[in-house]
Design a protein around this nucleic acid. Structure first.
Length: 968
RNA sequence: GGGCGGUUAGCUCAGUUGGUUAGAGCGCCUGCCUUACAAGCAGGAUGUCGGGGGUUCAAGUCCCUCACUGCCCA
């Protein structure tokens, strides 16, 4: 019996079941579109498409993923429930370096290595690893209920995606945008590959600045006895020095112009190389001694300097950062060992002028944290400027919108200072570059299909390039490649036309450049070549990979510290989910996800939202209890009555329009809760349109707990009294008794109440569902007794504000009056110490409007404020404890003596507040400028407020005066 | 060094194009096991909106400046 819910909500009891159900039933599949479509299906259904930022295949789910996925899931579920053709497309990234490292570590543990295995066997081994363990992170996603289309899951090394990678490379090559050359790149000696600028993380290191004396040579090549002292942080690179540079206006050294220096290496002075002194205004006169050594092969600035001055480059290190044969006597030493030896040798020769403490920024490999070695090497590059220009234009023209907008600035800053992209990696795991070297003519053949002969000399002595492509090259192509590019034909293009450009990208700022910018560049570049369905050329607006980018914050720990393994403050989402339930964790993340602010994840907050889930659960129990009671006396559930009815087009019916009770007199509370529901759904829609997950969550929370549970459920209890009535058969035999007649009337009232109750509750579930998919699914099925109108609440419609819902605003105001009356009475009772359980009479002086409301809803006041009788009066009986509001005065008729000093204090506080407000209001109202320039409604509002405040002040003063002296 | 943020209640954060007496959650205090929920209900306290200056009829909101702080890039 689905109505039989346990007293406390236990997420673990239901979540696995639904997570598994959603996958098994394939509920979120969005099959490949085959008929003509352009952003809309034939029936005009708008699309909502979103790509999951593919986690590394080696990845484990962390809090950042969960935030990212929660946001995407909320938007996708909301879009789907709002009638959009929603596609959330999942996949994983082959993650070149990370994955290779992981498998290499395994090999090391097994006492072997990738070199021993050989390339082919190694790659096969990685595939094997991927098949075994690669799905872990997606399995975790499944557990979290992500509503992705699992049928479209991709892996960046899949055949079809590899085709796209090759096409992109070849095309760029044909367009002259790919070149190969020897440049300074960031080299990781541990990974033994080049890495891109972005993969280098800088860290401050306390090091030294060594000042070294280089002997000045005369024209005859002999030492003049003079020395030029240079400063360096990396003495070991001296081995590759080809010059010393000074600033052209540095008068300290100008006399040395044109002279040469001996490079003091090794103990045989005669063997020292001679290097020139060059002038360049790049040199900073303030740094060190103002003279710097120039090592083009091991420093990017020096490389540029070398280019300008046509200097040679001497590479002195091998792939593992050991000194190579160019390092003479130091060959074979590790770079740090070489540094030590060189410094010692210099000192021994009296050439070390000074050693100073110095803090410098040292680049580390993003993956393995090894200190990166800038190193001259031959790599493949993308000439990025033409792609960047388009990508800049796309954002400038608003074809792509960033939220928060601030990130557009960051994007422009980077894009406008972009460097060519080093796309080759000396790895084995990845997309191998489709280029073949010819052993005969030494030229390169780049080809879509594996060639057998050199295209230049037709030799068959060709071998494929051993380098693979940067992982981001393939992930940067995803928005086009997942929808069929480059194989788009008139016959199969419907899917691409439907979903490209995708609607949105949700991601963290940490991959803004790595991935987001690259997708924009590659997407604009390649999609731009795909004609529109009607054959016309594609505009830039239609070429972008996504129309919007939402950048979310970082999830930190409760103390705002970054989560890191070394700090040991990492929160495992799966653990926290086990403890509090997925829904509560999702709601926590959503409610804290205000744009631009990092999230300090605090389990106390999660505890609060677990309580919220429990609240929802118990509201369901309450409603079910009453439905069951009603059923016992023959009143059918409103949904049972309507079962099987469908609206136009076979869509799920909006039940409210069919509710019979709406024809008659609707009680204030019912009109109010409906108005509040519509208002809230409008707020949630607006908030989600603007990625304000926090506001959306707050609106639902406030509505469900603050309005529906705290007020409506309490009020409706008055109308849920049902009893057995005679059957139709019996009534043919006899007349109704007076009692039975009353019972029938009560049952009719209860039926109306149940209609509103169930309708509002079921609507709330749909509204809450994108945020808390599990509990809402569970209860929703129970609402329909296990026979719901759709397979899942996720396929039902999201509540929309009804047209004309603005006219419901007066209802909200009316109800607010009733609520404030009740709140005042409760406060009064508390102040004068009425026992919780006792019901007392009240005196109420009210204007006509409130009087009518109070009369019509006297039973509500009596129950919610525990009032035995409402006495409407012209003036409150002197001496009774009373409160004033703008529209009424109210007093409790209670004999117990009030706490005079406390009451006096309270009134004094009120009076001070009123006086302060009054002074401010009067000052402003006396200001000619204000009256003349402020909008009318502001002036009117202030006047009204001033009058109310004056009224309240007078009342409070009178009450204070009427108080008996202390101690009475 | 260049760029971009932040500073509002004890804590974590909202606060729209300037407009009525600055809000929420958590925490805190008081009283209640009122048969949906003690993971609950009711009531309550708490702010020189980082400092200073300016613009304006009106500033948490716009401008300048100082302090502190975070991030990105080099």
């Amino acid at each position: 019996m689905p109505h039989d819910l346990p007293k406390a909500y236990d997420p673990t009891a239901i979540e696995d079941h639904w997570a598994e159900y959603w996958v098994r039933e394939n509920l979120f599949a969005q099959p490949v579109v085959t008929s003509a479509a352009q952003g809309e299906s034939a029936d005009g259904q708008p699309q909502f498409s979103i790509l999951l930022p593919p986690p590394n295949v080696t990845g484990r789910l962390h809090m950042g993923h969960m935030l990212n996925q929660t946001e995407m899931d909320i938007l996708t579920r909301w879009g789907r429930m709002s009638g959009r053709r929603a596609l959330w497309l999942p996949g994983t990234d082959h993650a070149g370096i990370a994955t290779q490292m992981m498998v290499e570590r395994q090999l090391t543990a097994e006492g072997t290595s990738r070199q021993k295995l050989g390339r082919e066997a190694f790659v096969e081994r990685v595939w094997e690893w991927k098949r075994h363990y690669g799905g872990a992170i997606l399995d975790q996603m499944k557990r979290l209920g992500a509503s992705v289309d699992w049928g479209r899951e991709y892996f960046t090394m899949d055949e079809r995606l590899s085709v796209a990678v090759r096409e992109a490379f070849v095309k760029l090559h044909e367009q002259g945008l790919i070149y190969r050359g020897a440049y300074i790149v960031n080299w990781c000696p541990r990974c033994q590959t080049a890495i891109s600028d972005l993969e280098v993380v800088y860290d401050e290191h306390k090091g030294h600045l060594w000042e070294i004396r280089y002997p000045v040579h005369g024209d005859d090549g002999r030492e003049t006895g003079e020395y030029l002292t240079i400063a360096t942080t990396r003495p070991e690179t001296m081995l590759g020095d080809v010059a010393v540079a000074i600033h052209p206006e540095d008068e300290r050294y100008l006399h040395l112009q044109g002279k040469k220096l001996g490079l003091p290496l090794g103990d045989i002075r005669k063997a020292w190389r001679e290097i020139p002194i060059i002038l360049d205004d790049w040199v900073s006169r303030d740094f060190g001694t103002g003279a710097v050594k120039v090592t083009p092969a091991h420093d990017p600035n020096d490389f540029a300097l070398g280019q300008r001055h046509h200097l040679p480059s001497i590479n002195v290190m091998d792939d593992t950062a050991h000194i190579n044969e160019n390092g003479g006597v130091y060959a074979g030493l590790d770079r740090y060992a070489a540094r030590k030896r060189i410094v010692e040798d210099l000192e021994a020769q009296g050439l070390l002028a000074a050693v100073k403490d110095h803090t410098n920024n040292v680049g580390h490999c993003d993956r393995c944290k090894t200190v990166v070695e800038p190193r001259l090497s031959t790599q493949w590059f993308v000439k990025i400027q033409p792609l960047a220009d388009k990508a800049i234009e796309a954002v400038e023209k608003g074809h792509i919108k960033f939220t928060p907008e601030m990130y557009a600035k960051t994007y422009f800053e980077w894009m406008r200072n972009i460097h060519d992209w080093c796309i080759s990696r000396q790895l084995w795991w990845g997309h191998r570059i489709p280029a073949w070297h010819c052993a005969v003519c030494h030229k390169i053949t780049v080809s879509r299909l594996d060639p057998t002969h050199c295209t230049h000399c037709n030799s068959d002595q060709i071998t494929q390039e051993t380098d693979v492509l940067d992982t981001w090259f393939s992930s940067g192509l995803l928005p086009v490649s997942v929808f069929g590019w480059p194989g788009i034909t008139p016959e199969n293009r419907a899917d691409f036309d439907t979903f490209y450009p995708t609607s949105l990208l949700v991601t963290g700022f940490d991959i803004l450049f790595f991935w987001v910018a690259r997708m924009i560049m590659l997407g604009c570049w390649f999609a731009g070549d795909v004609p529109m369905p009607d054959g016309s050329p594609r505009s830039l607006a239609d070429s972008v990979p996504f129309k919007e980018v939402y950048i979310h914050a970082l999830v930190r720990d409760a103390n705002r510290e970054k989560m890191s393994k070394t700090k040991g403050n990492v929160i495992d989402p799966i653990e926290i989910v086990k403890q509090y339930g997925t829904d509560a964790v999702r709601f926590t993340l959503a409610s804290m996800a205000s744009p631009g602010t990092d999230i300090a994840f605090n389990v106390e907050r999660t505890e609060g939202y677990r309580a919220f889930a429990n609240k929802v659960w118990n509201a369901a129990r309450f409603i079910f209890m009453n439905l069951d009671r009603a059923a016992e006396v023959g009143i059918e559930s409103p949904f049972k009555v309507l079962r099987g009815r469908k609206g136009p087009g076979g869509r799920e019916i909006n039940l409210l329009f069919n509710l019979p009770f709406l024809g008659g007199e609707i009680p204030l509370a019912d009109r109010w809760i409906l108005a509040a529901l519509y208002k809230t759904s409008g707020e949630v829609n607006e908030a989600l349109e603007n990625y304000r997950f926090d506001e959306a969550a707050a609106a639902i929370y406030q509505f469900f707990w603050g309005s529906f549970c705290d007020w409506y459920l309490e009020i409706v209890k008055l109308r849920l009294d049902v009893s057995k009535t005679p059957s139709d058969e019996e009534l043919k035999q006899r007349e109704l008794t007076e009692e039975e007649e009353k019972a029938l009337e009560r049952n009719a009232i209860a039926t109306g109440a149940l209609h509103t109750l169930l309708f509002v509750f079921e609507s709330s579930l749909r509204m809450l569902s994108p945020f808390m998919p599990f509990i809402t699914e569970e209860i929703w099925h129970a609402v329909f007794d296990g026979n719901p109108p759709a397979k899942s609440i996720a396929l039902a419609r999201f509540p929309r504000p009804r047209e004309g819902s603005a006219t419901l605003a007066p209802v909200i105001e009316e109800m607010a009056l009733l609520q404030s009356l009740i709140v005042e009475v409760r406060g009064l009772r508390k102040e004068v110490g009425v026992e919780e359980k006792a019901a007392v009479p009240i005196e109420l002086r009210a204007d006509a409007g409130l009087k009518k409301i109070a009369q019509e809803n006297h039973d509500i006041i009596e129950r919610l404020a525990r009032v035995s009788e409402i006495r409407f009066v012209e003036a409150i009986t002197a001496g009774l404890p009373m409160h004033h509001a703008a529209n009424f005065d109210v007093a409790v008729v209670y004999e117990r003596t009030i706490d005079v000093p406390a009451e006096r204090e309270r009134l004094a506080k009120d009076i001070a507040k009123y006086e302060k407000g009054l002074v401010a209001a009067e000052r402003q109202l006396g200001n000619e400028g204000f009256l003349a320039r402020a909008p009318l409604q502001v002036v009117e509002g202030l006047k009204k407020q001033e009058a109310e405040t004056r009224h309240l002040l007078e009342k409070a003063l009178a009450t204070l005066k009427a108080l008996p002296p202390d101690g009475s």
